[in-house]
Nucleic acid binder design. Sequence first.
RNA 1: GACCCCAUCGUCUAGAGGCCUAGGACGUCACCCUUUCACGGUGAAGACACGGGUUCGACUCCCGUUGGGGUCGCCA
Length: 467
Amino acid sequence: MTKIVTRFAPSPTGYLHIGGARTALFNWLFSRHHGGTFLLRIEDTDRERSTEDAVQKIFQGLKWLGIDWDGEPVMQFSRMNRHAEVAHKMLAEGKAYHCYCSPEELEEMRNKAKAEGRPMRYDGRWRDRDPKDAPAGVKPVVRFKAPQIGSTVINDHVQGDVTFQNEQLDDLIILRSDGTPTYNLSVVVDDHDMGVTHIIRGDDHLTNAARQTQLYIAAGFAVPDFAHIPLIHGSDGAKLSKRHGALGTEAYADMGYLPAAMRNYLLRLGWSHGDEEIISTQQAIEWFGLDHVGRSPARFDFVKLNNLNGHYIRHTPDDELLTAALPFIEKKCGLQPNQAQQMQIKAILPAAKERAKDLNELAEAFAFLFAVRPIAPDAAAQKHLDDAAKARIKTMIETLTGVSDWTAANTEAAIRALSETQQVKLGQLAQPLRAALTGKTVSPPIFDVLAVLGREETLARLADAAG
RNA sequence: GACCCCAUCGUCUAGAGGCCUAGGACGUCACCCUUUCACGGUGAAGACACGGGUUCGACUCCCGUUGGGGUCGCCA
């Protein structure tokens, strides 16, 4: 059995978007499952649109997701000469030819085809023409002499056998008039030279697969295995746009998603293993295969991502979670927590992480710790601070002042006792307490809040609220 | 428009002719837990797009219709 080689081949024209991330994940998982190799190739042949910044973003995005690649990334542009070499060989073998059509002529062909309701097909006017007819001063492109009869079939691991009639495919340009290779040629040559055995990529390349198959055959290369995975759609079923989540991975990092959650979400989008939902990366490597990749497009759903992210936040060990949350805490709380402050955060982290769907929410849960007195209650909290509540707070101050050993258990016991003697429900004491101490109606368990705030700060905040 | 692909609860999906009274997860609703919000627990509503075949028997196979998507560049 030959060693499996997969690759991810993005073009560096923007960020690593979510669809690309999933493609990379599938390739990575597939190669890791088979103990194979996963290569990275940057398709930077479009000099106009490719940027170094985008290359770095792709690297960072993959690293964030925890996807590592084998060896150095291949920069496609640097292999231009080799691509051209293959084209020239085809030319010499009569498998390709010079075409002297001007862009205007092509445009005309396109318009005519459109007007007649036909798809644009190059009509092959230079295919068998004598090179002596070449107009002077026109630099020709090189076109591939594609088979005109018969059919080309892709044995796709996801889509099954897909047959294209060769007459549907025209003679594509493999070398531009300036001598540079075009996409389909470059991809074929690179995938062959890199020894890629399995090409796993988006469904949008399915027609390219047919053209590329013809190229593989003409070049005398072995045709690799294909797996065209369905595209990811937006929540409305339409093409994934930015507002749907077609963002770069760094945007997801900023939104406070954990890489593990993202991996799990992306994995389940188009792939399944029975009823399994929470799947560790280790497990994914063990289970992943092309046979359970779905054939229909999936919609990107933030709600489910949030649920998964919440799960991973809850199950991340405190120390690890704190490290991940620190940048968010700095942003939300406006400070870099010192040692003592980190201790405070850690004290309520177990309670806070039960409540957060992302790292931003988690960080917000700590904001009350560092709020400066007097605390400004939000509108909802304000409602719990009416005159009756203030009176109760005054009583609670007296009660709490009597607590000698300031622990959550002791303050709770004191307040519970008070609720009984005063004949009020615990909630009527707890909510004003929460509002006065955190300025919010939602917080970690209130006696944990008292404990972490400490006696002095608690009493001071209560005094502020009592007016 | 031509070619190609797809079609199970709102969403992600299980399902390889009888195991399906169609399962799980998210979401929704109800109840329980409870100092808030969460978490957790229990339960409910909720789908095989439609029409023809094939078969003793179709969610599963075939054909068509409808709907959705992709591709039609000297971009990748």
